[in-house]
Every structure is written in C-alpha cells, then in structure tokens.
Simulated scan of single mutants.
Amino acid sequence: MPVSGVGTLVMGILNLTPDSFSDGGRLQSLEGAVRTARRMLAQGADLLDLGGQSTRPGADDIGAEREIGRVLPVLQAIRAAHPEAVLSVDTFRAPVAEAALAAGADWINDVGGGRRDPEILKVVAAAGCPYVLMHSRGDSRSMDDLAVYGDVVQEVRQELLVATERALAAGVKAAQVIWDPGLGFAKTTEQNLELLRRLSELAGDGFPLLVGPSRKRFIGAVLEEPRPRARLWGTAAVCGQAIAAGAAILRVHDVGPVVQTARMVDALCWPQQAAPAWG
C-alpha cells in the first residue's frame, strides 16, 4: 500500500525553461505560469513542482543565478495567488533551494540526490522540509553513458540508501526523505521497465516513493510514439502500475487525467485509503 497511508498524491509539473523535453518554452510569461498553476490545482493537483533548469539529456547548465531568476518570480506569484498551495522547487543547487524556501517553497525536489551540490543537504536540514531524493548518475551530458547495471533495481536501491545516509549525516531527518527512482535518468528503456515491474522492492525500505514517468522517452519507445505530448495513455498506464506497487506520489504534466487514474487505481488496489492528503 502507499507509504503515505492516505492515497496517491499528484504533483503537477511547471517547467519554467525554454528547453525542457516536452513542454519547454510553453510558460514564458508570469501570467501564463500562474494560469497553468490555477488550472492544475483546479484539476486536483496536490502540489506543484517548479523547475528552472532543464535536466533532459544534453541540456545546458545555466547556473544558479539564472535559475533563481526563472523560478522566484513565478513561485512568488503563485504563492500570492494560491497561499494554500503546496509548492515544490525542482533544483539540485543549494543557493536555488535556499532562495526558494525563503520565498515560500514547501518542498525541495533534488534530481541530484545531494550528489551534485552536497550543500543542498544542509539547506534542507535547516528548513526541515520534505526532500525528494532522486536516483541519478552523472549529469545531463553524461547520464546516458552511465546506464550500466547488473541488477538495476538493487543497484538503484543501494545508491539511494547511500545517498540517504549522506543526507542523514548532514542533518536531514528520515521523515523528510522521499525516494524517486529516477526514471529516465541514466536508465535504458528496459531498465526503466524493470524498475517499474519491481518497484515494490524499493517501497519496502519505508521511504515514500515519488515516481515521475510523464511523457518520457521509454514510454515513447514502447509505444513507438515520438511526440512527448501524445504519450498520455502510456503515462497513465505507468502511473497505475506505480500505484499498485506502492508509489505515494506521481509527478506528471497531465494533471486532470492522472488524478482520475490515481483515484480509480487507489479504489481498486487500496480501498481503505482516504482522499490524498499526505505531506
């Protein structure tokens, strides 16, 4: 069952970048970003994840100052318009995390899992906020070359455990930590599918699981669908499998359809669960 014990949460993605793989450049105005946030919340998003640095394969590293410049105005505008919203910031940089938390962010979602900028762990520890610790290897330029595993599930698990120990040593509390297996980050199509088939092995360590399959390349490979925005049904199928295996949170672009998917799968797999409220 979901570690949260209260149903599956849906995290809506707000990419504030010109080069993200499926929706780069679509939120170029402050008004457009706030409008999208309003729509996602109305569709049932439990929290929103704002990102100013693309992490797709081959993406350019823009630096902390530009990332802050992209994220903070939108974060502040959404916070002003929706003071009740739970807002996450997708960053691996300590200065961005610190600025975002000071500006009203509630969560930090770190694709580097504390590896790319270890100082982020101190920021999260001081804030006491939920911390999504994602499995990845290398960076946007090198990760595709690092998708080499014997047993991908057990190696991802061991690397998450090592990263978690590093976070705890920096002062992060175990109750803050949420694991993300990092679908699409240093994984081939088959490795992503194997992780999803055996996701319950990761759920067994007791940390809530966030799964982010939305529109990713491995879904396109299976469906022979090159258009990221046309991968909704494949994404929904992956979300159903993830919930059945114990995922607590789904990170997606298409909030409305996935909220419906999650509620239906929750009712089928976890009938004793209440409406999503964890976090």
Rank of each mutant, 00 (worst) to 15 (best):
G246Q: 08
G51V: 03
L209Q: 04
L161E: 15
R263Y: 06
D23W: 15
S214M: 06
R198T: 00
C239L: 08
R137W: 04
L133K: 01
V222W: 07
R157Q: 09
K216F: 10
T55V: 11
T164V: 00
L223Y: 12
G5D: 04
Q158E: 15
A262V: 09
N109C: 05
A37W: 09
L268E: 06
E31A: 15
A244E: 14
S142G: 00
L14K: 03
A94E: 02
E159Y: 01
G32D: 10
V152Q: 06
V265F: 01
R137I: 01
A237L: 08
S54C: 05
Q260H: 12
T36A: 13
L209T: 01
D60Y: 00
L209M: 06
R79Y: 11
S88Q: 09
R141C: 01
N109D: 07
G212P: 08
Q273T: 08
D145E: 15
L133N: 02
L223R: 08
W233E: 14
A277F: 01
D49V: 04
K187A: 10
A97D: 01
A248F: 06
L268A: 14
N192E: 07
Q158W: 12
S54D: 03
S136T: 11
V111D: 01
W179D: 10
A102H: 13
A275S: 08
V172L: 04
W278I: 00
A45H: 11
L268V: 15
E98C: 06
A42I: 07
L199Q: 05
M264R: 13
A203D: 03
D139T: 09
V34K: 07
D23T: 15
I13E: 02
L47P: 02
S22P: 04
L223H: 03
E84Q: 15
P83S: 07
D254R: 07
F92Q: 09
R157W: 06
R227P: 02
G24W: 13
F185D: 10
N15V: 08
A275D: 09
D205V: 13
E31V: 09
D110H: 08
D205N: 02
A242P: 09
R35C: 02
G51Q: 05
P181Q: 14
L14M: 05
T17F: 02
D60G: 03
A147M: 05
W278K: 03
Q154S: 14
V148F: 02
S20G: 08
D266Q: 14
R166G: 02
T189R: 12
E190I: 06
A77N: 04
D19V: 14
T91L: 14
A81R: 04
E31H: 10
A45Y: 10
D61S: 06
E159F: 00
Q43K: 00
E67I: 14
T235A: 01
V162T: 13
S4C: 03
A170S: 13
V71D: 05
E224A: 13
P271M: 03
R229T: 00
M40Q: 15
E155D: 08
